[in-house]
């Protein structure tokens, strides 16, 4: 085992197996956007302070800008492109649409990924859970209210009324 400049990595992203070589200091965000050309994941700050690059790694929301590409090895990644179900918007995406949770839309993919991870972990979240789950996702347009509403709605539609 030797330190290398180019690191081979293999992982799955949105159900697809990928193997490629990444630079030692390359971020996961760079690989996703510029190598795999999945442009849904956004760069808003590059330092983990805005959440626009949130992806789901092994079921957990993380900032793709704070993750080294080399750390993708063996992981199961989901980006916003992976939410689509048979070319249709998923229940979560439809809830965002119908509850007016999208304004400029730049934070939206990150918001979706944070809420997707939340709903997998906790199908019947209370408002506090939702607020906590998206408080690492900055939004400058919506004031968050309709986003929280959309996530509550999606949870209801997916898993029924809160027990």
């Amino acid at each position: 085992m030797e330190p290398c400049r180019q690191v081979p990595v293999a992982f799955t992203i949105n159900g697809r197996a990928v193997s490629l070589e990444v630079a030692a200091d390359e971020t996961a965000l760079h690989v996703i956007r510029d190598r795999l050309l999945l442009k849904g994941t956004k760069e808003g700050c590059g330092i983990g302070e805005c959440g626009a690059c949130t992806i789901v790694v092994d079921g957990k929301a993380v900032n793709a800008c704070l993750m080294l590409a080399a750390q993708l090895q063996g992981r199961n990644i989901m980006t916003v492109e992976g939410l689509i179900e048979k070319h249709e918007l998923s229940v979560l995406q439809k809830a965002f649409l119908e509850d007016h949770a999208v304004q400029c839309g730049f934070c939206t993919p990150g918001m979706l990924m944070s809420s997707c991870a939340l709903l997998k972990d906790k199908p019947r979240p209370d408002k506090g859970d939702i607020v906590d789950a998206i408080s690492g996702n900055l939004c400058r347009c919506t004031g968050y209210q309709q986003v929280v509403g959309a996530i509550q709605d999606a949870a209801r539609r997916l898993f029924g009324e809160k027990a």
Binding site: G48, G51, V57, K60, V62, L66, S114, A133, S135
Partner: peptide, 9 residues
């Protein structure tokens, strides 16, 4: 600490 995303890493 930080945010959910940061706490996860």
């Amino acid at each position: 600490f930080g945010s959910r995303q940061i706490r996860n890493m």
